[in-house]
Protein backbone atom coordinates (compact mmCIF):
# COMPACT_ATOMS: atom_id res chain seq x y z
CA UNK A 1 0.00 0.00 0.00
CA UNK A 2 2.39 2.60 -1.19
CA UNK A 3 -0.35 5.10 -1.94
CA UNK A 4 -1.60 4.87 1.63
CA UNK A 5 1.83 5.50 3.07
CA UNK A 6 2.33 8.46 0.79
CA UNK A 7 -1.04 9.82 1.86
CA UNK A 8 -0.06 9.61 5.54
CA UNK A 9 3.23 11.28 4.82
CA UNK A 10 1.70 14.08 2.80
CA UNK A 11 -1.04 14.63 5.30
CA UNK A 12 1.21 14.78 8.34
CA UNK A 13 3.55 17.18 6.58
CA UNK A 14 0.67 19.60 6.42
CA UNK A 15 1.04 20.93 9.96
CA UNK A 16 -2.24 22.85 10.01
CA UNK A 17 -4.24 19.82 8.91
CA UNK A 18 -2.43 17.60 11.40
CA UNK A 19 -3.17 20.13 14.14
CA UNK A 20 -6.82 20.10 13.17
CA UNK A 21 -6.89 16.34 13.30
CA UNK A 22 -5.31 16.29 16.74
CA UNK A 23 -7.92 18.74 18.00
CA UNK A 24 -10.72 16.65 16.56
CA UNK A 25 -9.32 13.48 18.06
CA UNK A 26 -9.13 15.22 21.43
CA UNK A 27 -12.72 16.37 21.16
CA UNK A 28 -13.94 12.95 20.07
CA UNK A 29 -12.05 11.25 22.90
CA UNK A 30 -13.37 13.75 25.44
CA UNK A 31 -16.88 13.23 24.15
CA UNK A 32 -16.52 9.47 24.21
CA UNK A 33 -15.11 9.38 27.73
CA UNK A 34 -17.15 12.31 29.05
CA UNK A 35 -18.64 9.92 31.58
CA UNK A 36 -15.18 9.28 33.07
CA UNK A 37 -14.09 12.90 33.12
CA UNK A 38 -17.39 14.16 34.51
CA UNK A 39 -18.99 11.19 36.22
CA UNK A 40 -21.85 13.36 37.52
CA UNK A 41 -23.00 14.16 34.02
CA UNK A 42 -23.75 17.66 32.81
CA UNK A 43 -27.42 17.98 33.71
CA UNK A 44 -27.39 18.07 37.50
CA UNK A 45 -28.85 21.37 38.67
CA UNK A 46 -27.24 23.21 41.56
CA UNK A 47 -28.82 26.64 41.75
CA UNK A 48 -26.53 27.69 44.62
CA UNK A 49 -23.59 27.64 42.25
CA UNK A 50 -25.28 29.50 39.42
CA UNK A 51 -23.30 31.82 37.14
CA UNK A 52 -19.85 31.44 38.69
CA UNK A 53 -17.15 32.99 36.56
CA UNK A 54 -14.32 30.78 35.25
CA UNK A 55 -12.06 29.45 37.99
CA UNK A 56 -9.84 26.47 38.75
CA UNK A 57 -12.86 24.37 39.80
CA UNK A 58 -14.93 25.42 36.81
CA UNK A 59 -12.50 26.34 34.00
CA UNK A 60 -15.34 27.57 31.77
CA UNK A 61 -17.48 28.88 34.64
CA UNK A 62 -21.01 27.70 35.41
CA UNK A 63 -24.33 28.31 33.69
CA UNK A 64 -27.52 29.81 35.20
CA UNK A 65 -28.28 26.44 36.81
CA UNK A 66 -24.89 26.02 38.39
CA UNK A 67 -23.85 23.35 35.90
CA UNK A 68 -20.22 23.18 34.91
CA UNK A 69 -19.90 24.75 31.48
CA UNK A 70 -16.86 22.69 30.50
CA UNK A 71 -18.80 19.51 31.19
CA UNK A 72 -21.72 20.84 29.16
CA UNK A 73 -19.43 21.75 26.27
CA UNK A 74 -17.89 18.27 26.29
CA UNK A 75 -21.21 16.49 26.53
CA UNK A 76 -22.43 18.89 23.85
CA UNK A 77 -19.71 17.58 21.54
CA UNK A 78 -21.56 14.27 21.49
CA UNK A 79 -24.60 15.98 20.05
CA UNK A 80 -22.83 18.21 17.59
CA UNK A 81 -20.43 15.55 16.31
CA UNK A 82 -23.08 12.85 16.40
CA UNK A 83 -25.48 14.90 14.34
CA UNK A 84 -22.65 15.80 11.99
CA UNK A 85 -21.46 12.27 11.30
CA UNK A 86 -24.93 10.78 11.01
CA UNK A 87 -26.22 13.52 8.76
CA UNK A 88 -23.20 13.36 6.49
CA UNK A 89 -23.43 9.59 6.29
CA UNK A 90 -27.06 9.82 5.26
CA UNK A 91 -26.15 12.37 2.60
CA UNK A 92 -23.28 10.18 1.50
CA UNK A 93 -25.37 7.05 1.09
CA UNK A 94 -28.21 8.84 -0.68
CA UNK A 95 -25.79 10.83 -2.81
CA UNK A 96 -23.73 7.79 -3.79
CA UNK A 97 -26.81 5.85 -4.78
CA UNK A 98 -28.59 8.55 -6.74
CA UNK A 99 -25.41 10.01 -8.18
CA UNK A 100 -24.23 6.66 -9.47
CA UNK A 101 -27.61 5.76 -10.88
CA UNK A 102 -27.93 9.13 -12.59
CA UNK A 103 -24.44 9.14 -14.02
CA UNK A 104 -24.38 5.50 -14.99
CA UNK A 105 -27.70 5.20 -16.72
CA UNK A 106 -27.95 8.76 -18.01
CA UNK A 107 -30.92 9.75 -20.13
CA UNK A 108 -34.31 10.10 -18.53
CA UNK A 109 -33.26 8.62 -15.17
CA UNK A 110 -30.49 11.16 -15.03
CA UNK A 111 -32.68 14.12 -15.80
CA UNK A 112 -35.35 13.10 -13.27
CA UNK A 113 -32.78 12.72 -10.53
CA UNK A 114 -31.12 15.98 -11.42
CA UNK A 115 -34.47 17.82 -11.39
CA UNK A 116 -35.06 16.41 -7.91
CA UNK A 117 -31.67 17.71 -6.92
CA UNK A 118 -32.59 21.13 -8.33
CA UNK A 119 -35.79 21.16 -6.29
CA UNK A 120 -33.86 20.26 -3.17
CA UNK A 121 -31.47 23.10 -3.82
CA UNK A 122 -34.20 25.61 -4.52
CA UNK A 123 -36.18 24.63 -1.43
CA UNK A 124 -35.48 26.52 1.77
CA UNK A 125 -33.86 24.02 4.12
CA UNK A 126 -35.36 25.64 7.17
CA UNK A 127 -38.91 25.07 6.01
CA UNK A 128 -38.25 21.40 5.40
CA UNK A 129 -36.69 21.11 8.80
CA UNK A 130 -39.61 22.68 10.62
CA UNK A 131 -41.98 20.48 8.70
CA UNK A 132 -40.16 17.32 9.66
CA UNK A 133 -39.76 18.42 13.25
CA UNK A 134 -43.48 18.99 13.41
CA UNK A 135 -44.33 15.56 12.05
CA UNK A 136 -41.64 13.54 13.77
CA UNK A 137 -40.85 14.64 17.28
CA UNK A 138 -38.27 17.39 17.22
CA UNK A 139 -34.81 16.49 18.41
CA UNK A 140 -31.67 14.78 17.31
CA UNK A 141 -33.25 12.23 15.00
CA UNK A 142 -35.22 14.67 12.92
CA UNK A 143 -32.27 17.02 12.97
CA UNK A 144 -29.77 14.68 11.36
CA UNK A 145 -32.33 13.10 9.08
CA UNK A 146 -33.23 16.42 7.59
CA UNK A 147 -29.72 17.81 7.49
CA UNK A 148 -28.68 14.55 5.86
CA UNK A 149 -31.53 14.63 3.42
CA UNK A 150 -30.70 18.16 2.34
CA UNK A 151 -27.07 17.29 1.68
CA UNK A 152 -27.80 14.44 -0.74
CA UNK A 153 -28.19 16.70 -3.72
CA UNK A 154 -24.70 18.16 -3.75
CA UNK A 155 -23.16 14.76 -3.06
CA UNK A 156 -25.19 13.22 -5.88
CA UNK A 157 -24.08 15.90 -8.32
CA UNK A 158 -20.46 15.33 -7.44
CA UNK A 159 -20.70 11.54 -7.76
CA UNK A 160 -22.64 11.85 -10.98
CA UNK A 161 -20.08 14.03 -12.70
CA UNK A 162 -17.32 11.69 -11.57
CA UNK A 163 -19.20 8.62 -12.77
CA UNK A 164 -19.85 10.20 -16.15
CA UNK A 165 -16.17 10.76 -16.76
CA UNK A 166 -15.01 7.42 -15.33
CA UNK A 167 -17.60 5.54 -17.36
CA UNK A 168 -15.76 6.45 -20.53
CA UNK A 169 -12.39 5.09 -19.34
CA UNK A 170 -11.00 2.31 -21.45
CA UNK A 171 -10.80 -0.28 -18.73
CA UNK A 172 -14.46 0.27 -17.89
CA UNK A 173 -15.31 -0.15 -21.55
CA UNK A 174 -13.19 -3.26 -21.59
CA UNK A 175 -14.95 -4.71 -18.55
CA UNK A 176 -18.31 -3.97 -20.11
CA UNK A 177 -17.25 -5.64 -23.33
CA UNK A 178 -16.18 -8.63 -21.24
CA UNK A 179 -19.78 -8.87 -20.07
CA UNK A 180 -19.68 -7.38 -16.56
CA UNK A 181 -23.16 -6.57 -15.16
CA UNK A 182 -24.33 -3.14 -14.04
CA UNK A 183 -23.71 -3.87 -10.37
CA UNK A 184 -20.23 -5.19 -10.93
CA UNK A 185 -19.32 -2.37 -13.24
CA UNK A 186 -20.55 0.27 -10.83
CA UNK A 187 -19.23 -1.39 -7.68
CA UNK A 188 -15.87 -2.61 -8.88
CA UNK A 189 -14.79 -0.23 -11.58
CA UNK A 190 -16.60 3.06 -11.23
CA UNK A 191 -17.28 3.76 -7.57
CA UNK A 192 -13.68 3.33 -6.35
CA UNK A 193 -12.81 6.21 -8.63
CA UNK A 194 -15.20 8.46 -6.75
CA UNK A 195 -13.74 7.80 -3.33
CA UNK A 196 -11.28 10.64 -3.03
CA UNK A 197 -13.52 13.56 -3.97
CA UNK A 198 -16.31 12.06 -1.88
CA UNK A 199 -14.12 11.80 1.21
CA UNK A 200 -13.08 15.40 0.82
CA UNK A 201 -16.62 16.67 0.41
CA UNK A 202 -17.77 14.45 3.28
CA UNK A 203 -15.21 15.95 5.66
CA UNK A 204 -15.71 19.52 4.58
CA UNK A 205 -19.44 19.02 4.91
CA UNK A 206 -19.03 17.84 8.49
CA UNK A 207 -17.98 21.30 9.55
CA UNK A 208 -20.99 22.76 7.79
CA UNK A 209 -23.40 20.37 9.50
CA UNK A 210 -21.94 21.22 12.89
CA UNK A 211 -22.48 24.86 11.99
CA UNK A 212 -26.01 24.19 10.71
CA UNK A 213 -26.91 22.28 13.86
CA UNK A 214 -25.68 25.18 15.97
CA UNK A 215 -27.58 27.68 13.84
CA UNK A 216 -30.80 25.73 14.11
CA UNK A 217 -30.41 25.29 17.81
CA UNK A 218 -29.75 29.00 17.96
CA UNK A 219 -33.12 29.58 16.32
CA UNK A 220 -34.65 27.20 18.86
CA UNK A 221 -35.19 24.39 16.38
CA UNK A 222 -32.48 22.00 17.43
CA UNK A 223 -32.20 19.35 20.11
CA UNK A 224 -34.38 19.47 23.18
CA UNK A 225 -33.33 20.37 26.71
CA UNK A 226 -31.60 19.24 28.83
CA UNK A 227 -29.36 17.90 26.05
CA UNK A 228 -26.50 20.35 25.78
CA UNK A 229 -25.91 21.57 22.27
CA UNK A 230 -23.36 24.22 21.46
CA UNK A 231 -25.80 26.31 19.48
CA UNK A 232 -28.39 26.22 22.21
CA UNK A 233 -25.81 27.09 24.81
CA UNK A 234 -24.84 30.18 22.84
CA UNK A 235 -28.43 31.14 22.18
CA UNK A 236 -29.39 30.73 25.83
CA UNK A 237 -26.33 32.69 26.85
CA UNK A 238 -27.08 35.78 24.79
CA UNK A 239 -29.16 37.50 27.46
CA UNK A 240 -26.20 37.00 29.78
CA UNK A 241 -23.77 38.51 27.33
CA UNK A 242 -22.98 41.39 29.67
CA UNK A 243 -23.47 39.74 33.03
CA UNK A 244 -21.82 36.39 32.23
CA UNK A 245 -19.98 36.60 28.90
CA UNK A 246 -18.35 33.19 29.33
CA UNK A 247 -21.67 31.55 28.57
CA UNK A 248 -21.47 32.58 24.92
CA UNK A 249 -17.71 32.89 24.62
CA UNK A 250 -16.52 29.34 25.38
CA UNK A 251 -19.11 27.34 23.46
CA UNK A 252 -18.59 29.72 20.54
CA UNK A 253 -14.82 29.26 20.62
CA UNK A 254 -15.05 25.48 20.77
CA UNK A 255 -17.65 25.47 18.02
CA UNK A 256 -15.51 27.65 15.77
CA UNK A 257 -12.39 25.61 16.51
CA UNK A 258 -14.21 22.38 15.66
CA UNK A 259 -15.53 23.65 12.36
CA UNK A 260 -12.08 25.07 11.64
CA UNK A 261 -10.53 21.67 12.26
CA UNK A 262 -12.96 19.89 9.97
CA UNK A 263 -12.10 22.36 7.24
CA UNK A 264 -8.37 21.97 7.82
CA UNK A 265 -8.58 18.20 7.82
CA UNK A 266 -10.78 18.21 4.73
CA UNK A 267 -8.34 20.44 2.88
CA UNK A 268 -5.44 18.32 4.11
CA UNK A 269 -7.00 15.09 2.90
CA UNK A 270 -7.74 16.64 -0.45
CA UNK A 271 -4.20 17.89 -0.92
CA UNK A 272 -2.67 14.62 0.20
CA UNK A 273 -4.96 12.43 -1.87
CA UNK A 274 -4.62 14.20 -5.10
CA UNK A 275 -3.21 17.66 -5.60
CA UNK A 276 -5.23 17.97 -8.77
CA UNK A 277 -8.54 17.48 -7.02
CA UNK A 278 -8.32 20.86 -5.36
CA UNK A 279 -8.86 22.38 -8.69
CA UNK A 280 -11.88 20.30 -9.55
CA UNK A 281 -13.53 21.01 -6.25
CA UNK A 282 -12.83 24.69 -6.54
CA UNK A 283 -14.04 24.92 -10.07
CA UNK A 284 -17.26 23.04 -9.65
CA UNK A 285 -17.83 24.94 -6.44
CA UNK A 286 -19.31 22.07 -4.48
CA UNK A 287 -18.11 23.49 -1.23
CA UNK A 288 -19.82 26.71 -2.05
CA UNK A 289 -23.02 24.83 -2.72
CA UNK A 290 -23.12 23.10 0.62
CA UNK A 291 -22.19 26.16 2.55
CA UNK A 292 -24.48 28.41 0.63
CA UNK A 293 -27.54 26.37 1.32
CA UNK A 294 -26.86 25.30 4.84
CA UNK A 295 -25.33 28.31 6.40
CA UNK A 296 -26.50 31.44 4.68
CA UNK A 297 -29.72 29.84 3.53
CA UNK A 298 -30.70 29.48 7.12
Amino acid sequence: MDGWRRFIRDFSRNRMAAGGLVFLILIVLAAAFAGLIFPDGADEIDLDNALRSPSAVHPFGTDPFGRDLLARVIYGARISLGVGFLARTISLLLGLFFGTVAGYFGGRTDSIIMRLADITFAFPALLLLIAVMAVVSPGMISLFTVLGAIGWASMARLVRSRVISVKEYEYVEAARAAGAGHLKLAGKYILPQCVSPVIVVYTLGLGMIVMAEASLSFLGLGVQPPLPSWGRMISNGIVFMRSAPWLTLFPGLVLTATICSFNLVGDGIRDALDPGSKRIAARTGKEGMIRGRLQQGL
Binding site: P64, F65, P225, P226, N236, V239
Partner: peptide, 15 residues
Protein backbone atom coordinates in the same frame (compact mmCIF):
# COMPACT_ATOMS: atom_id res chain seq x y z
CA UNK B 1 -40.29 27.66 21.72
CA UNK B 2 -38.67 30.29 23.93
CA UNK B 3 -35.21 30.29 25.55
CA UNK B 4 -36.47 31.59 28.87
CA UNK B 5 -39.19 29.01 29.36
CA UNK B 6 -36.56 26.47 28.37
CA UNK B 7 -34.39 27.64 31.25
CA UNK B 8 -37.30 27.45 33.66
CA UNK B 9 -38.35 23.99 32.57
CA UNK B 10 -34.80 22.74 32.83
CA UNK B 11 -34.82 23.59 36.49
CA UNK B 12 -38.27 22.06 36.96
CA UNK B 13 -36.87 18.97 35.28
CA UNK B 14 -34.00 18.98 37.75
CA UNK B 15 -36.30 19.20 40.78
Amino acid sequence: ENPESGRILESVQGY
